[in-house]
Nucleic acid binder design. Sequence first.
DNA 1: AATACGTGGTC
DNA 2: TGACCAAGTAT
Length: 354
Amino acid sequence: MSDRFARDLLAWYDEHGRHDLPWHHNRTPYRVWVSEIMLQQTQVTTVIPYFRAFMQRFPDVQALTEAPEDDVLSHWSGLGYYARARNLQKAARTVVNDFGGEFPADQEKLESLTGIGRSTAAAVLAQAFGKRAAILDGNVKRVLARYHAVPGWPGQTRVLNTLWEHAEQHTPDTRVRDYTQAIMDLGAMVCSRSRPACESCPLQSGCLAYRNSEVSLYPGSKPKKAKPEKTTWMVILEDSDGRIMLERRPPSGIWGGLWSLPELDPAFSPDELPEACEQAFGFDCSDAELIGGFRHTFSHYHLHIQPARLSVTASSNIADNDSQRWLHRDQALTLGLPAPIRTLLTNPEQTALL
DNA sequence: AATACGTGGTC
DNA sequence: TGACCAAGTAT
């Protein structure tokens, strides 16, 4: 049953673990699910305020299904990986339509919900239903890679499979909920990526990497690749009322479904911007003013964002539609906006310094 | 299997 | 200061 790994880990957790995170209270499947989705590739401290606001606005799965997608995205604004928000609502509708509004306590059925993979399904099973299920997130990967001295980068299927095997083996039959939280806490608080606190680790005596003084070698690092550089114009079209134009981005791709400033081909020179805007958007534009570009780094490429402000002179027939809205800046900030656009609209002077 | 998908923290 | 990475999943 539970080997010394789980036993020692749980003893440590009782004294040192995190027992008071927002999703630890009223631990319903819905709350656990939302927290797990938010926590994908995202730090706990970042998630906490988003989780509170989200629960206030969408208290249950029913409320989530009934909300406009824009509302969900605006609550996700700044969190990143926005497909998570769109998938969240899709999955909520599946729960209501196919599962009678109740989350299934079944690994396979949970994984059928979009946005829920193997690890998230296991986390919901363990945290919300107390069922035995092995998780394997970044924390667990690090702990297990060190404990068993598993060589290689966890992005490789072979390495990943090995880690999953260890994860399954160590998961106990009892106290699965606590165990799941415990191994994540250990990874976050003791077995951290840099400067792990091995002297305070309850698993030290069995840790192969520690025994060999090779803790820093695990887990193996990702092969590095140069990020491509891309450039774009982001135009702030402003009418005589001080309203600016926002465009809804396509549902897939970067910032999918969010509202943002309209983009223009970087091949245009500053001189050509007014005419390019007129052709693209159909308004008389003038006075292109360059605000000062900045570079934004994504996971897989760098984007040079070149903001430019233009005046719309003939604005009599301006109207909102599905993919285009004219709003004052404070109104624009209530939309689901990407973080750098939010910054750009809030404080263009600061952005110009970047 | 490899890649796309965000943002903020860390050193 | 730029590279690296975090409670991963979808395609």
